[in-house]
């Protein structure tokens, strides 16, 4: 479903000359699976997700979603993904209903089908109370619900969540994680980036631990625990990052 082969991304940088945001990462994710990208801030998670959502072009390597290449078949890719960013990205001057409808129409949904899907999603995510509330007047939790509704309105096979729980209180974050889990039950392939280990432990089927644009470890949680002989994911994560930092200093 998601195939990432050695993608890299470099930027020109005044101080260092070239800044490597991604140094060639690879991973695969399948339908009905939540694939976690774990890493501290600046690890390259957002860059990778932006490339997969066709917003950025990779400097090297290739990636495809459901068989469509993210560079040469960008339009086809966009129809097959739903993207939830870390800042909720909700229009201040549109109501929840208008926003979801707007994106549904951009995805080319038929009016009747769109209405039916929106009714179902608003019911499912318990959003009927905020149907006519402007984005600017919503709480962060409400905004994140709208963001998810917007991402799934066209029923895409792939969903990308970029640190979607940042800034949410415990209750809302838990509700969001439950929604994500529910989407997996529906057979969606989900790419979920986070730097919170408890979320990854609770949710992800496979994970890639990233640091400084590289994948340090990749596999299912059990595989990783076994390989590194460390039952606690947070400790494992910390050990990997520290070892990498020591190497970088040396």
């Amino acid at each position: 479903m998601i195939r990432v082969e050695n993608i890299s991304k470099e930027y020109a940088d005044l101080r260092t000359g070239q800044f490597v945001a991604l140094g060639g990462i690879s991973f695969h994710a399948e339908p009905g699976q939540i694939y976690g990208l774990l890493g501290p801030n600046g690890a390259g998670k957002t860059t990778a997700l932006r490339i997969l959502s066709t917003v950025l072009k990779p400097t090297g390597g290739s990636a495809s979603i459901n068989g469509s290449d993210v560079v040469t078949e960008a339009e086809a890719v966009r129809h097959q993904i739903g993207f939830v960013s870390n800042n909720t990205a909700v229009y201040d001057r549109m109501t929840a209903w208008e926003m979801v409808e707007y994106f549904g129409r951009l995805y080319g949904l038929d009016v009747e089908l769109l209405r039916a899907r929106m009714e179902a999603i608003f019911e499912q995510l318990q959003m009927n109370e905020i149907r006519d509330v402007l984005g600017g007047k919503m709480s962060t939790g409400m905004k994140q619900k709208v963001s998810i509704a917007r991402a799934i309105v066209h029923d895409p096979p792939v969903l990308i969540f970029d640190e979607a729980t940042v800034g949410l209180d415990v209750l809302v974050a838990r509700a969001l994680l439950e929604s994500v889990s529910q989407l997996r039950e529906n057979g969606k392939c989900i790419l979920f980036s986070t730097h919170i280990m408890r979320e990854a432990e609770r949710l992800c089927d496979r994970v890639a631990i990233m640091h400084r644009g590289r994948v340090l470890a990749e596999g299912s949680l059990d595989e990783l625990r076994e390989q590194h002989d460390e039952p606690d994911l947070e400790e494992l994560f910390f050990d990997l990052i520290t070892a990498q930092e020591c190497l970088a200093v040396a």
């Binding site: 066709t54 917003v55 966009r78 800042n87 990205a89 995805y107 917007r150």
Partner: peptide, 13 residues
Amino acid sequence: RGTLETLLSSPAL
């Protein structure tokens, strides 16, 4: 507001 990124990842060219 961060909405541009969402729009760019939609099917709109």
